[in-house]
């Protein structure tokens, strides 16, 4: 069981590394899906099967498919890949990566200081327990999340509409 955790953790880290360094958007997406599946595996190992299922169905399934659709719609070609390659020089990524590494070190230092001697036994927390929490004391939060989704829906349909010709030309003229 521990082996499964460390293996899938390694897969997740490597896949994520490829996500951020890939030059082709579709490849990056596929790597992200791999990463998400690996994280879902981690969830199963840790004893959160409900979360793992959600990770696969919602994240890797729904959200990533949305990304794939949009990237397909943009009709990106080899020029974009070349462009990405031109942008991805050490001068661009060295600084930010160092900064992120510094943040990681700080985070790890915090973990080191924290009282984290606890060991995860892998005891399963079922969907039933999650449901009791969500629709018991957290009911208001669920309502709020519903509002959030509605707001996102309205925003997406407003922002994503195709602008009229006049407004478009007015903007393009600048």
């Amino acid at each position: 069981m521990e082996l499964a955790f460390y293996l899938s953790g390694l897969v997740a880290v490597l896949a994520t590394l490829r996500v951020i360094t890939s030059t082709n958007p579709i490849h990056a997406l596929l790597y992200l899906i791999v990463s998400l599946l690996a994280v879902a595996m981690v969830f199963f190992v840790l004893g959160a099967p409900f979360a793992g299922a959600l990770e696969i169905i919602l994240y890797a399934g729904a959200i990533m498919v949305l990304f794939v659709f949009v990237v397909m719609m943009l009709n990106l070609n080899a020029a974009v890949t070349a462009q990405e390659r031109a942008w991805l020089v050490p001068r661009t990524w060295a600084g930010p990566s160092a900064l992120a590494a510094l943040l990681l070190v700080v985070l790890l230092a915090m973990l080191w200081h924290g009282d984290l001697g606890r060991v995860i036994e892998g005891e399963t927390l079922t969907a039933k327990a999650v449901g009791r929490v969500l629709f018991g004391p957290w009911l208001v939060v669920v309502e709020l999340v519903a509002m959030l989704l509605l707001a996102a829906l309205v925003t997406a349909s407003h922002v994503g509409r195709s602008v009229s010709r006049d407004a478009d030309s007015g903007r393009d003229g600048t």
Partner: peptide, 23 residues
Amino acid sequence: MNGVPMAHGLVLAAVLFALGLAG
């Protein structure tokens, strides 16, 4: 060893987070 130390899980989360941030 029986079970995964909690710290390891959090380290994995931190590493993934830092990668995303760098990207």
